[in-house]
């Protein structure tokens, strides 16, 4: 692994390795390779008329903003109750962790682990992972670039599963609706949790993975 990384790093110094260096851009929509030498950084795809950029504009800023949003929202999402159970007139609130603990106590370890993963670990992992990548870009950490890219792919992939908890609550709300006897409804944390998931997913979309590799290009060359 290390060798291959080094290969790339070595290659970088010898000539135009990246499209950017070669003055090429790719259209985000029709994937046509467009030369950027004749144009500004932002130009029009001659084929599909979409705006073409070398890199996604403002990717780092957007991703930072969204990641920070989700980081802030992560706290109320986990600390406030996500579900309200009315059982024979008595209200009960439960946070995400309460539910997980309940399942573990009940012996349903499988469900417990699934919910723990989808609702707690995945968002935390996503936020932590994207922040790690962003930090590495910011501080031009040139190590583990390939692993970071793989991690990002993984984050993109699991992002869709983190809505599991919301699905469970939505289903329960509909299924358990017996008026006075038993009612389940979503509580405030559900909103924040949705915010966390949405902003992490958006963060993953706005992030341009090529930026990871841009760190390999020495700043002097980039400025040339």
């Amino acid at each position: 692994m290390n060798n291959r990384q080094n290969d790339i790093a070595c290659n970088v110094g010898q000539g135009p390795v990246t499209g950017k260096e070669a003055g090429l851009m790719i259209c985000h929509y029709c994937h046509k390779v467009v030369s950027c030498h004749d144009y500004d950084e932002a130009t029009i795809c001659p084929r599909c008329c979409a705006t073409v950029h070398t890199r996604k504009p403002g990717s780092i800023t957007y991703t930072w903003a969204l990641v920070l949003t989700s980081l802030i929202l992560l706290f109320p999402a986990n600390l406030l109750p996500i579900m309200q159970v009315d059982y024979l007139g008595s209200q009960e609130y439960s946070t995400i962790m309460d539910g997980i603990i309940y399942f573990f106590k009940e012996g349903s370890y499988g469900i417990g682990i699934v919910i723990l993963t989808a609702s707690v670990l995945v968002p935390v992992f996503k936020i932590a992972g994207i922040m790690l990548i962003l930090l590495s870009i910011h501080f031009r950490w040139k190590t583990w670039l390939r692993h970071k890219t793989m991690m990002f792919r993984f984050i993109e992939f699991i992002g869709r599963w983190s809505m599991l908890d919301i699905f469970v609550i939505a289903l329960l709300t509909v299924l358990v609706n017996f008026g006075f006897f038993s009612t389940i409804s979503a509580a405030s944390a559900a909103t924040y949790f949705c915010g966390v998931v949405i902003s992490t997913m958006l963060a993953a979309i706005t992030f341009d993975t090529r930026l990871i590799w841009d760190t390999c290009i020495p700043p002097n060359r980039e400025e040339e």
């Binding site: 030498h37 950084e41 920070l68 109320p76 924040y192």
Partner: peptide, 28 residues
Amino acid sequence: EKPVTKKKKGISPIWILPAIALAIGLWL
């Protein structure tokens, strides 16, 4: 020819999102 690099001025409006989140968080 050197590609023209445009620096955007000011703060990106996307920062409203974390600001709102922060506001909510602080209020909570």
